[in-house]
Amino acid sequence: MTFKLIINGKTLKGETTTEAVDAATAEKVFKQYANDNGLDGEWTYDDATKTFTITE
């Protein structure tokens, strides 16, 4: 399955995708991506669209 991450950061904005077997796996990938890029914010997830959002 394809999951999307929408980034609404103070300095970084955009989106990225990952292929994962489930939402929990995708969340780990996206949280590592956010950590690697210095993002810290509030996370939301929409199961209907398989989309995570981080807002700083």
Rank of each mutant, 00 (worst) to 15 (best):
M1C: 05
T2Q: 15
T2L: 15
T2R: 12
T2W: 12
T2C: 05
F3L: 01
F3E: 00
K4S: 06
K4P: 00
K4A: 05
L5E: 00
L5K: 00
I7G: 02
I7D: 01
I7K: 02
I7M: 13
N8G: 04
N8Y: 06
G9V: 15
G9S: 12
G9T: 15
K10W: 08
T11D: 15
T11C: 05
L12W: 09
K13F: 14
G14V: 11
G14S: 10
G14H: 10
G14M: 09
E15S: 06
T17R: 11
T17P: 02
T17A: 08
T17S: 09
T17C: 04
T18K: 03
T18D: 02
T18F: 12
T18H: 13
E19G: 07
E19D: 08
V21D: 12
V21H: 14
A24E: 13
A24Y: 12
A24G: 14
T25K: 06
T25F: 11
A26F: 00
E27S: 09
V29N: 07
F30G: 00
F30K: 00
F30M: 03
F30A: 01
K31C: 03
Q32R: 07
Q32E: 10
Q32Y: 06
Q32D: 11
Y33C: 03
A34S: 06
A34V: 15
A34M: 08
A34T: 08
N35L: 09
D36L: 14
N37T: 08
G38W: 05
G38D: 09
L39K: 02
D40Q: 10
D40Y: 09
D40A: 09
D40S: 08
G41I: 02
E42R: 13
W43A: 01
W43R: 01
T44W: 09
D46N: 12
D46E: 08
D46C: 05
D47Y: 14
D47E: 13
D47L: 08
A48E: 14
A48Y: 11
T49H: 15
T49Y: 07
T49C: 04
K50H: 13
K50R: 12
T51D: 01
T51V: 08
T51Y: 03
F52V: 01
F52Q: 00
T53E: 06
I54W: 04
I54Y: 04
T55I: 06
T55A: 06
E56S: 04
